[in-house]
Design a protein around this nucleic acid. Structure first.
Length: 197
DNA sequence: AAGACTTTCAACCGCTGCTAG
DNA sequence: GCTAGCAGCGGTTGAAAGTCT
């Protein structure tokens, strides 16, 4: 509580949301010097951020090839397939989705897929109460078969599991618009080009 | 209209593995 | 072989936005 920072540098480390100025500084610096040792980069660029924070901001948000906005049904399917294969290896999964970051995929999984998994569990629980014998056989074979629990999850979320057999009807409020509450990346990059030398 | 509740996602934290000295 | 510093990863948090009552 009354603990004081060890030195003045530590006291100056900024946390929390990035400002537009900070974004511009980072973009401008990387455009001129390239990515490097992040701690050094943060200091050299004059940012009062940790190298870790700079790296995260760059990789998850500022990189020009980062795709923002809605995840397509194809991407949803791929995420589910790869998650079934590798589990929570988000960075590995992200490598197969160009322009998507591990953080984005992780958030997508936790907020959308996991939510529907719970709903589906509740739903199948209700069904199983009604069709106990039949469903017990099916779920047992899924969970104990070659694929194990992971396959059961994929089975639960395969397109054929939903009415209409189409990912377009995959339940849930998948967004159709990109975020508007943030400054446009094109603005930042055009400003960078104006400032850059 | 406004307060309560829910959802989303950017950012932080702690841990692990790698590598240079 | 040991150690320190760094990058990267996955889990978690909290603020803001959106929705409901």
């Amino acid at each position: 509580m009354d603990k004081k920072p060890c030195n003045s540098q530590e006291a100056e480390v900024r946390k929390g949301p990035w400002t537009m100025e900070e974004d511009l500084i980072l973009i401008n610096y990387i455009a001129n010097h390239g990515e490097g040792v992040w701690n050094t980069l943060a200091r050299s660029a004059g940012l009062k951020r940790t190298g870790k924070s700079c790296r995260l901001r760059w990789l998850n948000y500022l990189r020009p090839d980062v795709r923002r906005g809605n995840i397509t049904p194809e991407e949803q399917l791929l995420i589910m397939e790869l998650h079934a294969k590798w589990g929570n290896r988000w960075s590995k999964i992200a490598k197969h989705l160009p322009g998507r970051t591990d953080n984005e995929i992780k958030n997508f999984w936790r907020t959308r897929i996991q939510k529907h998994m719970k709903q589906a569990e509740t739903f199948t629980g209700q069904i199983s109460e009604q069709n106990d014998d039949h469903h017990h056989q099916a779920s047992t074979s899924q969970l104990c078969g070659g694929g194990g629990v992971v396959d059961a999850v994929v089975e639960t979320y395969s397109p054929s599991s939903y009415p209409g057999n189409d990912l377009e009807t995959f339940p849930g409020p998948f967004p159709t618009e990109s975020n508007d509450n943030i400054w446009c990346m094109e603005d930042l990059w055009s400003m960078q080009l104006l400032n850059g030398d």
